[in-house]
């Protein structure tokens, strides 16, 4: 029995050690992350006064109601469409690429994966800026299309430019999870499908696609969510002509000074992110 007591005592002191080890970062995360998150939530129910300051006394859903107004709704719809288009393009380009990587010799496979990782590590602003130069009027792409007789292309400051920039920024996020799930795929299942006279497309639809679905879902979430809230890319490549969600939120804070509306939109954005993450974990994904 005394052994049991000593054991319990030991376990309690272990728990205390663990807690003390976690305490500094736990406290930091509560103060500088959880509290700010709660402040945003509280503000989203507040009212903007005529002077541009925020009145917290009068709780209401005005800021959320404003999301239904045509201006805000258009911004949200436009952002969702652009993020969807980006996700689909990434998926269509990345799937065959990930497949290709998974079927190479280990040396080449590793080189290809490093080649995908390097742009992911290089400075985000610089990567967007590079496209600004490439797409500029009289820039390399425009001169190229002119030289081959297609005429000048002026796609800078259009939706197309924004989508190109977003695909460029987030393509590695699609390739890596797809590669992980394709690599894990048991090749014998494909052979079995073929042995049972399944056509190529049948085998893909019934066997390969369902088995690599976790990768498809993970990649899609990793591309869709940041595309939805993107700010730097639309500003630099879209020229701020057509406002997207990220820019709209920033404007509410830095120029329009309508904090409640900005706060409610940020919260909606985060809700989209949380729901997608939950969907991902439910669908059998283990790690992001």
């Amino acid at each position: 029995m005394s052994v049991g007591i000593a054991e319990a005592k030991r376990e309690r002191s272990e728990r205390r050690r663990g807690f003390l080890l976690a305490l500094p970062s736990f406290a930091y995360m509560v103060l500088f992350f959880a509290v700010p998150l709660i402040i945003v939530l509280v503000y989203s129910f507040a009212t903007r006064t005529s002077t541009g300051s925020t009145a917290l006394s009068d709780w209401n859903l005005d800021a959320y109601r404003k999301l239904g107004e045509p201006i805000v709704r258009n911004v949200v719809v436009r952002s969702v469409i652009l993020a969807l288009v980006t996700t689909v393009i990434c998926l269509v380009v990345a799937y065959p690429f990930a497949w290709f990587c998974a079927h190479q010799r280990p040396t080449i496979r590793n080189l290809l994966l490093i080649a995908v990782m390097i742009p992911f590590w290089t400075n985000f602003l610089v990567r967007n800026y590079a496209w600004r130069i490439l797409l500029s009027n009289g820039g390399p792409i425009s001169s190229f299309t002119e030289a081959i007789g297609l005429g000048e292309t002026n796609i800078l400051f259009t939706k197309t430019a924004v989508v190109i920039g977003l695909v460029y920024a987030y393509l590695p996020f699609m390739i890596l999870p797809l590669y992980a799930s394709i690599d894990r795929l048991d090749r014998r299942l494909i052979e079995a499908g073929r042995d049972l006279y399944g056509s190529g497309s049948q085998t893909f639809r019934r066997i390969v696609l369902p088995l690599t679905m976790p990768g498809v879902i993970a990649g899609s979430i990793l591309v869709f969510v940041p595309s939805m809230g993107a700010y730097v890319t639309p500003e630099l490549l879209g020229g701020g002509k057509e406002t997207l969600l990220g820019s709209y939120i920033v404007t509410q804070f830095l120029t329009a000074r309508n904090w409640p509306v900005g706060a409610s939109l940020s919260f909606v954005l985060m809700a989209v992110m949380l729901v997608s993450t939950i969907v991902y974990f439910r669908s059998g994904g283990k790690n992001l």
Partner: peptide, 24 residues
């Protein structure tokens, strides 16, 4: 709770994080 709290900054959009810090 701590584990969940440590997942959030990874998946939260930049803009939301920026808004949180400004307001805080």
């Amino acid at each position: 709770v701590f584990d969940a709290l440590l997942y959030l900054p990874i998946i939260i959009p930049d803009v939301t994080m920026a808004v949180m810090m400004l307001m805080f």
